[in-house]
């Protein structure tokens, strides 16, 4: 029993990170019906900018994180304007392929910036932990949960309550009708990319902290978001959060219990768990837990 609670908490921490990444995919998908495969590169750029502002320039950590997110928002908006806007009206498959190109370019940029070493993001929590009674909680898990879910909640509120958020949702429902109401649909696309990139940037910070440094290949953790978004239903923010937490917890508990009860499944079985959950769910609900049936998949 004393394994369960720590396992759950670790799972919620990593799950919040997955949720954050998944939501960053969902925001662009909802605006443009394109799955943005450049997301991992945006995440790594987020780690880089956090390191730049916090460590190299020595700014206070919270300020560094905000600046990094702002920088990523600019990168996202510019990318949309330059690489994606010309493709409006083309099949979404072509657009998705272009995002793969954007991934390659941005990864090259990131590698150039980072160099061969590792990024030390400046680590306010490191491997510190809090003690609550007999329970120990990693600070990095607390940070991931609070900041990850907090950012997602803030974006959700913005979409739900603000005038621009309403226009973004209108655009995702029916672009032509939104245009006819005077909504600048192109601006909504840029804004979606900006928000999404800022969230990915925050994820980059959360991946980079609590681990003592980050290699460029850590970008691949962002791909964990793919089973999560398919599980959640690719057009649903709530779905992305629930699925992210589910996958995180399932992974963490597998890591705790599988070596004890099912060692014959081999080492690192937890890596497979998201896909097992995914396949089991899709057999019952082909559109994911919260998805809309007519969503087109790329």
């Amino acid at each position: 029993m004393d394994l369960l609670l720590p396992g759950l908490l670790r799972g919620v921490g990593i799950g919040s990170l997955y949720a954050l990444l998944a939501v960053s995919f969902v925001i662009i998908y909802r605006a443009t019906t394109v799955v943005n495969f450049a997301q991992p590169a945006l995440m790594i750029l987020g780690s880089y900018f956090t390191a730049l502002f916090a460590v190299q320039l020595g700014l206070p950590f919270p300020l560094a994180v905000l600046l990094a997110m702002a920088a990523l928002a600019v990168v996202g908006a510019v990318t949309e304007r330059v690489a994606m806007r010309p493709l409006v009206g083309q099949p979404v498959f072509s657009a998705a392929m272009v995002t793969v190109g954007v991934f390659i370019v941005l990864t090259m940029v990131a590698n150039r910036l980072i160099g061969p070493g590792i990024i030390v993001v400046g680590d306010p929590w490191g491997i510190e932990f809090l003690r609550v009674g007999s329970l120990t909680v990693f600070q990095s898990d607390v940070a991931r949960t609070v900041l990850g879910l907090g950012a997602v909640g803030a974006v959700g509120l913005f979409l739900k309550r603000s005038r621009v958020g309403l226009a973004m949702r209108a655009t995702s429902l029916d672009q032509e009708t939104a245009l006819a109401q005077g909504v600048d649909v192109g601006r909504m696309f840029s804004l979606a990319w900006a928000i999404s990139a800022a969230l990915a940037g925050l994820a980059g910070m959360l991946v980079g902290t609590g681990s003592g440094g980050l290699e460029a290949t850590a970008a691949l953790i962002a791909l964990k978001a793919l089973p999560v978004i398919i599980l959640g239903g690719i057009d649903s923010i709530e779905g992305a959060v629930v699925a992210g937490l589910l996958v995180g917890v399932a992974e963490a508990l597998t890591r705790v219990y599988q070596p004890l009860y099912a060692p014959w499944l081999g080492a690192n079985f937890d890596v497979v768990v998201p896909y097992v959950i995914l396949m089991a769910t899709l057999m019952v609900r082909p559109y994911g837990l919260f998805g809309t049936p007519e969503v087109e998949r790329v």
Partner: peptide
């Protein structure tokens, strides 16, 4: 201003939200 063929309301939005989109500018 225009009312398009087929009404084209945002069917997932509330009445209020539909009107607010109309007041976007």
């Amino acid at each position: 201003g225009q009312v398009m063929e087929g009404r084209r309301i945002f069917s997932e939005f509330t009445v209020d939200e539909n009107l607010r989109v109309g007041g976007h500018r």
